[in-house]
């Protein structure tokens, strides 16, 4: 409940701040449709609201995918970013930027599609390693780390081969940015998060059982391999959708689950929504910070997330020294 209120507050501040330095009153009037000033309406409805909502949607998707990843791999360092899923998506996007989109697609369509496709490829590889006889969660983590290095190397190769213009575009995309948010993109990310929910609800107790280790989960009748596969599909869709439109944003997927775990525990019925909410809050706060660190300047969100999140995270961890891991 407190989390919802704080996130709502952060959303309001996010909408209220920006380089245009609009007075709070005119922003509020515009939001409720009473502004009468076309310029203010344009800024609020075409930029601020989409950016603020995108921060919530993408943050929720990253928080949820990170939480799922940490649960199915039973590892606190797991997230889409640390295990190569985001790197795969980044490589997919860079591939389109360097090689150009296929004829029947615009670059704006091809980049997100390629990002989602390669997030899926990365998850599929992790899954295939998991199907090896005797595969353990540790092997999946190692496979993810290997993928991270593989996709980073491929990305570096693309950057090495890219033209000056394409290189700049890749680098900017990798920083992560909410500024290109549109209502359509928000709808897609929001729909993906909402669409994943019913599939998660079915498996909540099975995911909780997985926290006791594979052997105990199997003993409780959980078909562990199938559960991991279902979760990996959701992780690839959530990560793909989040990364596709705003670039690679690290930290949220890693830290939001820890915040939820410390505050709410690991019953997945509250842990997963909690991680989604923590992710939304962190990215929303980062969005505010990206606009206010130097007033009038927009910092790329990917840089700011860690700057905002680390102090908050350290404070939480130091305040709760229970041995969860």
């Amino acid at each position: 409940m407190v989390g919802l209120v704080v996130t709502a507050l952060s959303f309001v501040v996010d909408v209220a701040t920006g380089p245009a330095m609009l007075p709070l009153r005119s922003v509020a009037l515009s939001v409720v449709g009473l502004s009468g000033d076309a310029t203010v309406d344009a800024i609020v409805w075409a930029i601020r609201l989409p950016v603020a909502l995108m921060a919530l949607a993408v943050g929720a998707a990253l928080g949820l995918s990170g939480a799922l990843m940490q649960t199915i791999l039973n590892n606190p360092l797991a997230s889409s970013y640390t295990l190569g899923i985001s790197a795969g998506a980044g490589f997919g996007a860079a591939l389109v930027i360097v090689a150009g989109p296929p004829l029947w697609l615009t670059e704006g369509q091809a980049i997100p599609l390629a990002a989602m496709a390669f997030a899926g490829v990365a998850c599929a590889i992790v899954h295939l390693v998991g199907r090896l006889r005797g595969a353990t969660p540790e092997m999946l983590v190692l496979a993810g780390i290997a993928l991270l290095f593989l996709f980073q190397a491929l990305l570096s190769l693309l950057q090495f081969l890219a033209s000056q213009e394409a290189l700049q575009q890749i680098v900017f995309w990798l920083f992560g940015s909410l500024q290109k948010a549109t209502w359509t993109k928000i709808s897609v990310v929001g729909a993906v998060v909402a669409g994943c929910t019913p599939f998660l609800v079915r498996d909540l107790w099975r995911l909780t059982a997985l926290k006791l280790g594979d052997e105990r989960a199997r003993g409780l009748g959980v078909e562990v391999g199938g559960l991991r596969l279902r979760a990996l599909v959701l992780i690839s869709v959530l990560t793909g959708a989040a990364v596709a439109f705003v670039g690679t944003i690290g930290f949220i997927g890693l830290v939001a689950p820890h915040i939820a775990r410390i505050l709410l525990g690991e019953d997945q019925r509250i842990f997963l929504p909690g991680a989604a909410l923590a992710g939304a809050l962190l990215l929303s706060m980062a969005s505010v910070a990206s606009k206010t660190i130097i007033p009038g300047t927009l910092f790329p969100i990917g840089i700011v997330t860690a700057l905002v999140g680390v102090p908050f995270f350290v404070w939480l961890v130091l305040g709760n020294r229970r041995a969860y891991w």
């Binding site: 039973n74 606190p76 107790w205 099975r206 909780t208 059982a209 926290k211 006791l212 280790g213 052997e215 105990r216 003993g219 409780l220 009748g221 959980v222 775990r261 525990g265 690991e266 019953d267 229970r322 969860y324 891991w325």
Partner: peptide
């Protein structure tokens, strides 16, 4: 009940026992 090899989790005792009725 398998051999106890420990497991890293923040589950409570109630949640753990509830899982028996999964």
């Amino acid at each position: 009940v398998p051999q106890d090899i420990g497991s890293r989790t923040a589950l409570t005792v109630t949640e753990t026992v509830l899982l028996g009725r999964i």
